[in-house]
Amino acid sequence: MTDRAPRRQGRDETDEERADRMWGELIQEVRVAQTGVQILFGFLLTVVFQPKYDRLSDADQAIYVVTVFLGAVTTGALVGPVSLHRLVAGRRVKPQAVRLASRLTLLGLVLLVATMASALLLILRVAVGGGFVPWLTALVVAWYLLCWFVLPLWTRRRHAAR
Rank of each mutant, 00 (worst) to 15 (best):
A119Q: 11
P134R: 03
A97Q: 05
R99S: 09
L139Q: 08
S102A: 15
A97C: 06
W143Q: 05
R103D: 12
G131C: 09
L122D: 10
I123W: 07
T137N: 12
A97Y: 00
L146M: 09
P152V: 07
F149N: 06
T155Q: 08
L106K: 14
P134Q: 13
Y144V: 14
V113F: 07
A119F: 09
A114R: 06
G90C: 02
V98Y: 06
G130I: 02
L100S: 09
F132K: 14
L107C: 15
L106A: 07
L112W: 09
C147S: 15
T155H: 05
I123E: 07
L84D: 13
V113P: 09
R92Y: 02
G129P: 13
Q96S: 15
Q96E: 11
A97S: 00
G108W: 11
A89C: 13
L106G: 06
V128C: 12
A142R: 01
A114P: 07
L122Y: 00
L121W: 12
R125P: 02
R156S: 10
V150H: 05
A138C: 10
F149M: 03
T115M: 12
V128Q: 07
P152Q: 12
G131Y: 03
T137W: 00
R92E: 14
L146I: 00
Y144T: 02
T105Q: 05
T155R: 14
A119I: 05
L139F: 04
L112I: 05
A114S: 08
L104D: 15
V113L: 07
A142E: 04
W143V: 10
L112G: 03
F132T: 15
L121H: 09
L107H: 03
L121R: 01
W154D: 05
A114K: 06
L151H: 05
L104P: 06
L151R: 06
L87P: 00
F132W: 10
R125S: 09
L136Y: 10
L84W: 08
T105K: 07
A138S: 04
M116Q: 10
V93Q: 02
R156I: 14
L107I: 14
G129T: 08
L106F: 01
V88M: 09
A127F: 15
Y144D: 01
A89P: 12
V93T: 09
L121K: 06
A114C: 15
W135S: 04
A127T: 09
R91K: 11
L111W: 04
L111F: 15
T137V: 11
H85V: 04
L146G: 15
A127E: 02
G129E: 02
P95M: 12
L100I: 02
L112C: 13
P134C: 04
V140L: 03
L109S: 04
K94Y: 01
G90Y: 02
L139A: 09
L124S: 04
R91W: 02
G131T: 08
L109Q: 07
P152W: 05
H85Q: 05
A138Q: 03
G129F: 11
L139D: 11
V126H: 13
A101P: 07
W154S: 06
G130C: 11
L145C: 04
